[in-house]
Computed example of a mutant assay.
Amino acid sequence: MDIMGELLASQSKKIITLNRGQQAEGTIVSITEKEITLDLGSKSEGVLQRREVETQELKLGDQLKVFISQTENESGQVVVSTTPQMRSSTSDRGGRGGRGIYWNKFIQAQSQKIKLKGTVLEVNKGGLIVEVDGARGFLPNSQVGFELLSKASKGLQDLVGQTLSITVIEIDQNDNRLIFSQRGQVSDEVKGKLKEFKTGDKAKGKIVAVLPFGLVVDINGSEGLVFISDVSWEKVEDLSTLYKVEDEVEVVVTGLDEELGRLSLSIKQLAEDPFTKLSEKFPADEVVKGEITGISEDGVSVKLDGAEGFLPSSKMDSDSKYEAGKSMSFLVDGVDTRKRRVTLAPFVTSTAGLI
């Protein structure tokens, strides 16, 4: 067994049993362009499609709440989602695989682009849980349009129970998944107001709603959204601790979405990324000390002084013992500005085997 295999095998944990539809919390152990791997405390790791959390800034070691979509796929992994399985308040509706859902109704709505009326049941960091004719689906925050933002000005509590016009963009009968969108429902008047802005414009606006996934900002009658990941260069857990309705904020326009009728805004883009200067503290071959915060098949995550470090599995020292919580010395191998972390190499204190 190689060093990585021994390392992962040595991590003892209490095995739990997971059931389809169950909500669970996992620790991120691997992040790729397409998938995020989670330690769920079960015999198998969970795998989440990266696109489900595309608006969130996540890193190794972060905790993430998910729902179990499939207890085991063909690779032996647990398939998870940030959205709960679609379910219905009635039964005897869909027949095989339907779990009480009028699947044909939604399939027809998707193919013919029919607008449906839904009711907001819940709002979370990923978006909204919406009910249509007793069936629950998900409206991701990336698909939230002007209609919702205008209603959000009444406050988060008033948002629950609101009726929205939505379309179906994704159906998965096997996993009971139903994804909605508000695209393509914007009036010419709203589109006209959006054209008054261009990418790069700086403006001052007033916060009209603080949602789990972002800030709704009114700029001279046009609604814009600052995703939680665009508020600060540092990770923000709870926007309500930093902002409140009626606060004035300065923003920069990062995009115009005519199909959703909203401005894409950023607060953090107004300031220089602190990592740019911070990275100057970590020149190549510098010896640094850090605490191990996580271990995955890809390598070891390390907390450095003011930055995140990462030791790839391909560079791990076979004579060193890596454990979460352990402080160790490393060599700076380089700085990854895209991933905003310091790439590390082992700090070998002995010349044995090198000469």
Rank of each mutant, 00 (worst) to 15 (best):
M1T: 09
I15M: 08
L18P: 07
R20H: 04
R20S: 11
T27L: 08
I31M: 11
T32A: 03
K34P: 01
L38A: 10
V53E: 06
E57K: 14
E57F: 12
L58F: 05
K59N: 04
L64S: 07
F67Q: 01
I68A: 00
S69M: 10
N73Q: 04
T82F: 11
T83Y: 12
S88R: 15
S89L: 15
G94Q: 10
G95H: 09
R96L: 12
G97F: 10
R99Y: 10
N104W: 09
Q108I: 11
Q108V: 14
Q112D: 15
K113Y: 11
G118P: 05
G127Y: 05
L128N: 03
V132H: 10
A135K: 08
F138H: 01
E147P: 04
L149H: 05
S150R: 15
S153W: 04
L156R: 14
Q157A: 15
L159A: 10
L159I: 11
L159N: 06
I166L: 15
I166Y: 05
T167Y: 11
T167P: 07
V168C: 03
I171T: 08
D172I: 07
Q173A: 14
N176S: 15
R177M: 12
R177E: 12
L178S: 03
S181D: 07
R183H: 05
V186R: 03
V190N: 00
G192D: 00
K193P: 00
G205W: 08
V210F: 06
P212G: 06
P212C: 10
P212T: 02
G214T: 01
V217W: 03
E223V: 04
W233M: 05
W233I: 00
K235A: 13
T241Q: 11
K244F: 03
T254Q: 11
T254A: 13
D257H: 05
E258L: 07
L270C: 08
D273K: 09
L278G: 14
K281A: 13
E286L: 15
E291K: 15
E291G: 12
I295K: 08
S296N: 11
E297Q: 12
G299E: 03
S301T: 13
G306I: 01
F310P: 07
F310E: 01
K315N: 08
K321I: 13
K321R: 14
E323M: 06
S327R: 08
S329R: 11
F330Y: 15
F330P: 06
V332A: 07
D336R: 07
T337D: 03
T337Y: 10
A352S: 12
I355H: 09
I355G: 12
I355T: 09
